[in-house]
Simulated scan of single mutants.
Amino acid sequence: MSEWAPKRFWKTTETTQVEGGFGILLDGRPVRTPAKAALYVPSAALASKIAIEFDAQEDRIDPTTMPFTRTANAAVDKVMLQHAEVADMLADYGDSDLLCYRADAPEELVERQNAQWDPLLDWAADALDARLETRTGVIHAAQDQAILSRLRERVHALSAFELAAFHDLVSISGSLVIGFAAKMQHRNPEELWTISRLDEIWQEDQWGEDEEAAEMALVKKDAFLHAADFMRLIES
């Protein structure tokens, strides 16, 4: 038996400007989130993207084809209600940032990490006023608390919509610095994704690709690139 899916019930899809943002109208009625809150987003570009997703639905509604709608719903129904908790969770990545933990061998891997990760840490020192220090090995060593406090303030300053996208940028990459680099469009998202997978790519180069791991990596890549695109549309 196939899973039940709601039918498309509207004929026209359009966007509208409202106080404090932009909404999506289905036959003139505002779209609401699964929790029945009004779905208002911060930019016309993001509203248009969501409207396109609704308009693309045919006889049955398929939520898997509506990633921008899902992320916007999460921002309203979840992040707005738990903003401080989500911000704290993401800010904690600064104390164990992927880019700070380095191999001591082989030399080729060490050089690759230095070449790809050091420039991002240098950028963060300038753009975020946060110089994170590197460590050799995987044993946790705390960063300077004053630096972590500055990064935490930046994370808490993000809106609920920004934080919803930032969640995936940081949690998927394992790096608060990469998350900010994507948000601030310091590097192309594809490039940032590849940089975040340096260690995995190294392992693949040495031992070959694991099919199951490769499939999971593609899922994560799609989510990371979607989050970067969502963030870009917020700021359009």
Score class of each variant (00 low, 15 high):
Met1Asp: 11
Arg8Ala: 07
Trp10Tyr: 15
Lys11Asn: 15
Lys11Asp: 14
Lys11Arg: 13
Thr13Trp: 07
Gly21Ser: 06
Gly21Ala: 05
Gly23Asn: 12
Leu26Phe: 04
Gly28Trp: 02
Gly28Glu: 13
Arg29His: 10
Pro30Leu: 02
Arg32His: 13
Ala37Asp: 12
Leu39Val: 07
Tyr40Asp: 05
Tyr40Cys: 09
Tyr40Met: 08
Pro42Met: 03
Ser43Lys: 09
Ala47Ser: 10
Ser48Tyr: 05
Ile50Arg: 11
Ile50Trp: 03
Ala51Ile: 06
Ile52Phe: 08
Glu53Ala: 05
Glu53Cys: 10
Phe54Gln: 11
Ala56Gln: 14
Glu58Met: 11
Thr65Gly: 13
Ala75Glu: 07
Asp77Phe: 11
Asp77Asn: 10
Lys78Leu: 15
Val79Ser: 05
Val79Thr: 12
Leu81Phe: 10
Leu81Glu: 13
His83Pro: 07
Asp88Ser: 09
Met89Ser: 15
Leu90Asp: 02
Gly94Trp: 01
Gly94Val: 02
Asp95Leu: 03
Ser96Cys: 11
Asp97His: 00
Leu99Ile: 05
Tyr101Gly: 03
Arg102Ala: 08
Ala103Gly: 00
Asp104Glu: 06
Pro106Leu: 11
Glu107Asn: 07
Val110Pro: 08
Val110Ser: 02
Arg112Tyr: 12
Asn114Asp: 13
Asn114Lys: 13
Ala115Pro: 02
Gln116Lys: 06
Leu120Phe: 08
Asp122Arg: 09
Trp123Ala: 01
Ala124Lys: 10
Asp126Trp: 12
Leu128Asp: 02
Leu128Ile: 06
Ala130Cys: 05
Glu133Phe: 00
Ala141Met: 08
Gln145Ser: 13
Gln145Gly: 06
Leu151Pro: 07
Arg154Ser: 04
Ser159Arg: 06
Ala160Gln: 06
Phe161Trp: 09
Glu162Leu: 05
Phe166Val: 05
Asp168Cys: 01
Asp168Pro: 03
Ser171Thr: 14
Ser171Asp: 12
Ser173Phe: 02
Val177Gln: 02
Ile178Gly: 01
Gly179Ser: 09
Phe180Ile: 03
Phe180Ser: 01
Phe180Asp: 00
Gln185Arg: 15
Asn188Cys: 12
Pro189Ser: 10
Glu190Asp: 15
Leu192Thr: 02
Leu192Val: 01
Thr194Met: 09
Ile195Gly: 09
Arg197Ile: 00
Asp199His: 06
Trp202Ala: 13
Gln206Val: 08
Trp207His: 15
Trp207Pro: 04
Glu209Gly: 06
Glu209Asp: 04
Ala213Ile: 06
Ala213Pro: 10
Leu218Glu: 15
Val219His: 10
Asp222Val: 11
Phe224Trp: 02
Ala227Val: 01
Asp229Ser: 15
Phe230Thr: 09
Met231Leu: 14
Arg232Pro: 05
Leu233Met: 09
Ile234Trp: 06
Ser236Asn: 12
